[in-house]
Amino acid sequence: MDKHHPHAPPRAAIIGTLARAETSELREAVHAHWPGLQWREAKPAEAGLVMLRGRTGGDGAAFNLGEATVARAVIDLETGERGHGQCLGRDMEKARLAAVFDALWQRETDRDAVERHVIAPVRARIARQGANDAARAAATRVNFFTLVRGED
């Protein structure tokens, strides 16, 4: 996402990775590395809609394409850091956990651990899946050649 928003802060990339994590990846990381972590919801987690937009002809004026479900949560750690979690779908647990890791990442003492135990493994999995998709698609790359038909 840095390529779209050269000025987006590093935190935006962290939040973006958390949105693409599996709920189980986040849940297991909390249990393994932050057992007994205390936090409270600053706002009740909720599911809602975001209207997605396309662009006329791919790069022109915007139009409303259709909505997507989105779950979001805002949590506070005991030490005061506020985390925002939001992801496609209706999984409120995932939104809460994403918010927890966004908050932990802001805590100097936990930033490295969040990057090592959560962000890096999730990014590695996404990269693996992406490479796999790309390699399978590449095997279907076709080179058509044209033939002259008839005598004319």
Partner: peptide, 19 residues
């Protein structure tokens, strides 16, 4: 494609995932 959404409280857009 990535879905990006501007979060008012944060002041920047974040990815919500891919569709």
């Amino acid at each position: 494609v990535e879905v990006e959404f501007f979060i008012e409280d944060l002041g920047f857009a974040v990815s919500l995932g891919e569709i």
